[in-house]
């Protein structure tokens, strides 16, 4: 039996809304340590990795490790029926072929349940290696979203260059060229405006803005986002979900041919 009760139910809605355009169907893996998802996007250029720890749930029970294949589009439709402040409980029998979502309003005066058919999705689950990145930039998630949106009106790709002075996002196209530089400001009076750069060595990589924009759909999940880069390796775009875990995206850089 798998049963998990999430008081901040809208967190699940935000997670699914953040990944449903990148990944169509995916396996959610449940184990005693938590609820995870790892999937390549449909074009195998980016990887999504979700991890929600069991201790972040009000109640979490997983008698046997199980993998629940779901259409993320259908899951998003079901979660749209949940109130923003609803408590969400997921339930699935060990050998069942459905998963039930129960939504309870805070005043417990409205309870609804939705049953979703599970799918058989074969996906090789590979470990994500720890990488010692050349640079990790942490900036407000809204700032990152705005940079990606602004630059995607200029070009299809962005060069992200991290140096000790700051991180520069450059793009060019028919319209012209654009450079946006964000400097480290760990002394910003408001925490949510802080930008920090952990630099081991300068690094500059080129990425497709389409994917970076898609990752920014996770903005509602966290105040900040971290971009970790190393030469010729996928960038890790990391949204920390407070007290629960993280939603991470990996995107391969464009290798200059």
């Amino acid at each position: 039996m798998f049963e998990a009760r999430l008081v901040q139910g809208n967190l699940l809605k935000k997670v699914v809304d953040a990944v449903k355009d990148l990944v169509t169907d995916a396996n959610f893996d449940c184990s005693s340590s938590g609820f995870t998802l790892q999937a390549m996007d449909n074009s195998h250029v980016s990887l999504v990795s979700l991890s929600l720890r069991s201790d972040g749930f009000e109640h979490f029970r997983c008698d046997r490790n199980m993998s629940m294949g779901m259409s993320l589009g259908n899951l998003a439709k079901i979660l749209k029926c949940a109130g923003n402040d609803d408590i969400v409980t997921m339930k699935a029998a060990d050998d069942g072929d459905t998963v039930t979502f129960m939504f309870e309003s805070p005043k417990e005066d409205r309870v609804s349940d939705f049953e979703l058919k599970l799918m058989d999705i074969d996906s090789e689950h590979l470990g994500i290696p720890d990488t010692d990145y050349a640079a990790t930039v942490t900036l407000p998630a809204a700032e990152y979203q705005r940079i990606c949106r602004d630059l995607s009106s200029i070009g299809d790709t962005v060069v992200i260059s991290a140096t000790k002075d700051g991180v520069k996002f450059s793009s060019s196209g028919d319209v012209g060229t654009a450079n946006i530089t964000v400097r480290q400001n760990t002394t910003a009076d408001k925490k949510e405006e802080q930008v920090s750069i952990d630099l081991k060595e300068p690094v500059a990589l080129t990425f497709a803005l389409r994917y970076l924009n898609s990752f920014a759909k996770a903005t509602p999940l966290a105040s900040h986002v971290s971009l970790s880069m190393a030469r010729d390796l996928p960038v890790m775009v990391d949204y920390q979900i407070s007290d629960m875990g993280h939603l991470r995206f990996y995107l391969a850089p464009k290798i200059e041919d």
Partner: peptide
């Protein structure tokens, strides 16, 4: 080894 496996998944990008 694990890193190779991981990178291989991004095969469409390289």
């Amino acid at each position: 080894k694990q890193a190779q496996e991981f990178l291989k998944r991004f095969y469409n990008a390289y």
